[in-house]
Design a binder for these strands. Structure first.
Length: 528
RNA sequence: CGCGGAGUAGAGCAGUCUGGUAGCUCGUCGGGCCCAUAACCCGGAGGUCGGUGGUUCAAAUCCGCCCUCCGCAACCA
């Protein structure tokens, strides 16, 4: 049976402009989605926005707009950024859309009927800012919100609650049975130590203190509180409890479909604890993996408006191209740990991996094919007397294998390291075989094997990197004389370039002058 | 003692689970090559692995204590 793959980003909150940190997360998901499509898996990639809540209501009022107008405008900006970054999402879910609202309401009603949700009066420590209730242990002796450290106060409010106790055993079983359900593992331990061991409270799933939300049908003065609303996007977008639920059946209900949520550490709790419980209560399958990605920070620490150190992805895309930005994001920071954005590293990464390695390899190879073979790649042959040929062949096979293993395990960074090994090996191969010497020999067989090996190495590199270099990979194939279509099935076909007329063009990635470009980027960063 | 992460060559990191000649990328210095985008290839220098005490024949790696930095609380993946 054909494999399928469903991947989601968090749905971003439209209260401010997106910065490179959001681009980071979305790009990683996009790379994974493109990989699975490339491999021929049935793939569905979802992103979207989480548009309800008190903060939106407030911000809209400050701007003299209705909440809907307010979010509509911001969401246009979100979509524009994803387009600029070549994000290949199959759908974009907005929690204010009818399809989502209806699904959430149906789920809420079902939970009510099923006794998973009850109307209670909560008396507890309430943090107004976080819109959250906390336990005695959690607020401590000083009665501070464990989340925002502001003072909390005893509050009583009529509210609906989800009975977490009913599903706690299920949750622990999930953790035990699937080691990779939440990764990195430290995130799972954090959940257990911080929230489960101290005693998990029932989750408050409605609010009466604001109105910008999905109304509870049975009791319209309540709106459904953020997490029951937001998390459901992952299935409402597929048509769950809607007239047309083809996608939901095809992906979510499909045992052969790997379902992956990528998320930030700040929302781990909701994804790791409540989302599995909701799904259990609905008797639905669980996602296979919840991957908590690291933060892309600057030297001043985490990016934030107040620090003035946020980085807008647009100027970077304009100046260096979408391929370079995507490559930087996918390669620089080890997926799962925090990383630092510095202008120096940005420029260095592009120069080393893209200009010097793959770009220069293409340029020097095509020059030689022009010079020695009038621009036509000869038939692929291997020189048995040349140990370097078999070594390069082996490197390619190993790299492809490693690339697949890494991506199957969501390790994007490692996969790219594997992919760029081919270019590095091929550059070395040129020095080892000295084709300019071979060209002077009468027997052209050795030269032929070198040139065809180089061309093929470039072909494989282009295909592997196509999930990141959405445009330049095609460019490589075009310069090699192919039509620019990426096809993974032919990746191990060494004869794909036999007798193809190359079409040498400009350097793929011009080498950047570090001093000048670092200065430029620093200026971009100062335009707060 | 709030929770969590981190301290390894000039920079950024891997290695720590499963103790046993300290590794990668970049920079730097020297050499090579000339097909190429001052690129590519080879070699050298550079680290008492935050500190300290312990376990051990042996510790970056295991255990104890201490120090420093960062994130989780303000619009913020």
């Amino acid at each position: 049976m054909k494999k399928s793959f469903y991947i989601t980003t968090p749905i971003y909150y439209p209260s401010a402009k997106l910065h490179i940190g959001h681009a980071y997360c979305t790009t990683l998901c996009d790379v994974l989605a493109r990989y699975h499509r490339l491999k021929g898996d049935d793939t569905y990639f979802l992103t979207g926005s989480d548009e309800h809540g008190m903060k939106i209501e407030k911000n809209a009022a400050l701007n003299n707009k209705s909440p809907q107008e307010f979010v509509d405008e911001i969401v246009v900006g979100f979509k524009k950024l994803w387009k600029a970054l070549d994000i290949s999402n199959d759908d974009y879910i907005r929690t204010t859309e009818k399809r989502h609202v209806e699904t959430v309401q149906k789920i809420f009603s079902y939970f009510l009927k099923n006794n998973d949700i009850y109307l209670g009066e909560y008396e507890g420590w309430y943090c107004k800012e976080c819109e959250a209730f906390w336990t005695d242990i959690q607020v401590g002796e000083e009665h501070l919100c464990p989340d925002c450290h502001r003072p909390v106060s005893k509050a009583k409010e009529e509210a609906y609650f989800f009975k977490t106790s009913k599903y706690l055993d299920d949750l622990l079983k999930i953790y035990d049975s699937n080691e990779k359900f939440i990764t990195p593992e430290s995130r799972k331990n954090e959940m257990i130590n911080t929230f489960i061991k101290p005693g998990l409270e029932d989750l408050c799933v409605s609010r009466t203190s604001f109105s910008w939300g999905i109304p509870v049908k049975e009791n319209p003065k309540h709106v459904i509180y953020v997490w029951l609303d937001a998390l459901v996007n992952y299935i409402s977008a597929l048509g769950y409890l809607q007239k047309d639920d083809t996608l939901f059946k095809k992906f979510w209900l499909n045992d052969n479909c790997e379902k992956v949520h990528v998320l930030g550490a700040d929302i781990t709790r909701f994804h790791a604890i409540y989302w599995p419980m909701f799904l259990k209560a609905l008797n639905l399958p669980l996602p296979n993996r919840e991957f908590v990605h690291g933060l892309l920070m600057t030297k001043d620490g985490k990016m934030s408006k107040s620090k003035g150190n946020t980085i807008d992805p647009y100027p970077l895309i304009e100046e260096y191209g979408v391929d370079a930005v995507r490559y930087y994001l996918a390669r620089e920071v080890n997926f799962g740990s925090d990383g630092q954005f510095t202008p120096e590293q940005f420029v260095e990464r592009i120069n080393m991996d893209l200009a010097n390695n793959i770009g220069n390899l293409l340029n020097r190879t095509l020059s030689m094919i022009n010079k020695y073979y009038d621009g036509v790649i000869p038939q692929f042959i291997s020189n048995i007397n040349n140990p370097y040929d078999s070594d390069l062949d082996q490197t390619i096979i190993n790299s492809v294998k490693e690339y697949e293993e890494c991506l199957n395990d969501l390790r994007v960074t490692d996969a790219l390291i594997a992919a760029t090994k081919i270019g590095a090996r091929a550059n070395k191969y040129i020095d080892e075989t000295t084709p300019w010497v071979l060209a002077k020999q009468e027997d052209k067989t050795p030269l032929q094997s070198v040139m065809t090996h180089l061309a093929y190495s470039l072909y494989v590199s282009a295909v592997l990197l196509s999930i990141v270099l959405t445009r330049k990979s095609k460019e490589i194939l075009l310069q090699l004389g192919l039509d620019g279509n990426i096809n993974y099935e032919t990746i191990l076909n060494q004869h794909i370039l036999d007798n193809v007329k190359i079409n040498k063009g400009l350097p793929l990635f011009p080498r950047l002058d570090e001093t000048i470009e670092v200065e430029k980027i620093k200026q971009m960063m100062n335009i707060k």
